[in-house]
Amino acid sequence: MNQQVQETSSNEEMLADTVINGNQFLTFTLQEETYGVDILKVQEIRGWSEPTPIPNAPEFIRGVMNLRGEIVPILDMRRRFQMDETSFTKYTVIVVVNVRERTIGMTVDAVSDVMDITVEDMKDAPDFGTSIDASFIRGLAASEEKMVILLDIDAMLQSCELVDLDKIVEKTEATV
């Protein structure tokens, strides 16, 4: 039930974002695909540095790093989406996002661009049959011959066990 509530609210949020806040997305690549996240959720972009591994954490959580005194967990997006592993290069970047008052870093292959995407450009996400859970996807957008998969990072991070379950429930109840 909470899950449903969450989805509804993030859909509404999406529409609201698009209409009110304009529609800029930061796009980045992961294994030849281009993904986009709402630029308003992005705090900063940083170069890769080895994080401190967290004991007994899921594989896709690389560890934590020190971001100006704050302890920030780092998600390996390739691992999260069960893609092939690559070694980290000088192009590997950490996109630091703010979601639900939390600061989280995501490793991506490279950051591409900031794109304007309008509601008309956006299409519903079909069920890909890929490794990426459809519930993480807000929609698809075609731009300059390129297909951009727009991620719903709220939903994605929630599924990443980044927060204790009871806290999610708490927060959901608070927003209802």
């Binding site: 401190t52 967290i54 004991p55 007994n56 954490a57 934590v64 005194g69 704050e70 302890i71 920030v72 967990p73 939390r102 600061t103 989280i104 066990e161 980044l162 927060v163 204790d164 806290k167």
Partner: peptide, 16 residues
């Protein structure tokens, strides 16, 4: 430092 600000409780770890 509090770990739970941005992450969840890590068992066996009180902070960082």
């Amino acid at each position: 430092k509090n770990v739970e600000d941005n992450y969840r409780k890590i068992q066996g770890i009180s902070g960082a």
